[in-house]
Amino acid sequence: MKKETTLVVDDAIYSEEALKLAAYVFEDRFRTALRRRGARTEVRFSGEGAGDAPGEFLNEALNQQCRLDLMKKNSKVANIIVTRMLLSASGGNQKSGGKK
């Protein structure tokens, strides 16, 4: 049976990126359509799994939003760690004369 549920979220709390990332996580469970309504976003769920969608979607959106907020604070150190690791894995240490 096809179901449809709608949710309205405040843009001051959830960014567009967090909502899109959350929608992507559940793409195999239900369809999600986002529509801007002034300072809010309407989220429409449809498909078989749409019944339980709002709660799970909001949890994931919060998770993504917290991660994005954290990235603003920590991105410098996080990028240094990831770059260092990928450089070592690529043999970049050796190519640059082995200087560590």
Binding site: D69, N74, V82, L86
Partner: peptide, 11 residues
């Protein structure tokens, strides 16, 4: 995998 397992970016 490298980026998503970086704990600096896990809330």
């Amino acid at each position: 995998c490298c980026a998503s397992s970086n704990l600096e970016q896990q809330p």
